[in-house]
Nucleic acid binder design. Structure first.
Lengths: 141, 141
DNA sequence: ATAGGACTTCCTATCATGGGAAGGTCAAGG
DNA sequence: CCTTGACCTTCCCATGATAGGAAGTCCTAT
């Protein structure tokens, strides 16, 4: 299986497969005589695992850990659960943050006529500077 | 007011002030004889506006638009409201996405004993590949 | 044999932010 | 007056995950 087939079989782009290999997330694929990467079903499974974990919002570092736990058939489920729970906590915190933003904004928007007149509480609030704001935009994991 | 004072007065780091100037988000600050940037209270207000908008999760491009609307005292509030509402919609969509991730994960976690035993539905699910998944991790705006 | 597609590596960019080096400037104190 | 230390300037580099593209090699089907 070459990289194109691996990509469509796993749902991970060829670009990303090379990248994952480069950063050591997956082991370097075997090569054919002509230097093409060659993937086994096992490799595809790894890629699918990664794909699914990404879709659940796990960061690459967490995925690294999950992958090695997955490969270790005698790991205690405690460790896996800890990672997952940590991630859920993280997600919930970010959700709350964004919820606060959305709520604050729609409150402001409700107070805005949205017509031809220029006065608008949204701009007024933005101009007022960091009000009692706690929610600050953070980069996504 | 030099850049350090502007930074602490606005809450925007000196690095970021230079960056905002570079990308044209704010106009280039005046310079003193010795080439130091010199900021007026008006500039500080702009920076505070930006800071507050960032804290509400607006993307830089949206902020560009909001800023020009803010400067135009005869703009119709309609335009401002449209940007804000668009952003709220966007936020709510991302919230729903993350909520789905968090819910799916905590469901899996609930099924995991979290003890010394190795069996764990979290890994099983991840290995199953993209289940009926719709929520996919997207880069943060 | 030749055309087309798919592969290889390497470089570039994104977005917002921070770190740091090398060198110029200002204010306070000896 | 000169030193010191804190500040300023520009320029380069890095991040994380992803994509785009160029130049060159290889495979497959006609």
């Amino acid at each position: 299986m070459n990289i194109g087939q691996a990509a469509s079989a796993s749902g991970v782009s060829a670009k990303m497969i090379r990248y994952y290999e480069q950063i050591g997330l997956i082991r370097a694929a075997d090569r054919t005589d002509s230097n093409y990467r060659s993937f086994s079903t096992r490799d595809i499974n790894d890629l699918r695992f990664i794909k699914r974990a990404r879709s659940l919002g796990f960061a690459m570092e967490e995925i690294t850990n999950l992958l090695s736990l997955w490969r270790d058939h005698s790991r205690p489920s405690r460790e896996v659960k800890a990672i997952a729970d940590g991630h859920v906590t993280d997600l919930r915190a970010r959700i709350a943050e964004m919820q606060a933003m959305a709520d604050a904004l729609s409150l402001l928007s409700d107070g805005c006529a949205g017509d031809d007149r220029p006065d608008c509480p949204i701009l007024t609030d933005l101009a007022a500077g960091p009000s009692r704001g706690q929610a600050t935009a953070r980069p996504r994991p």
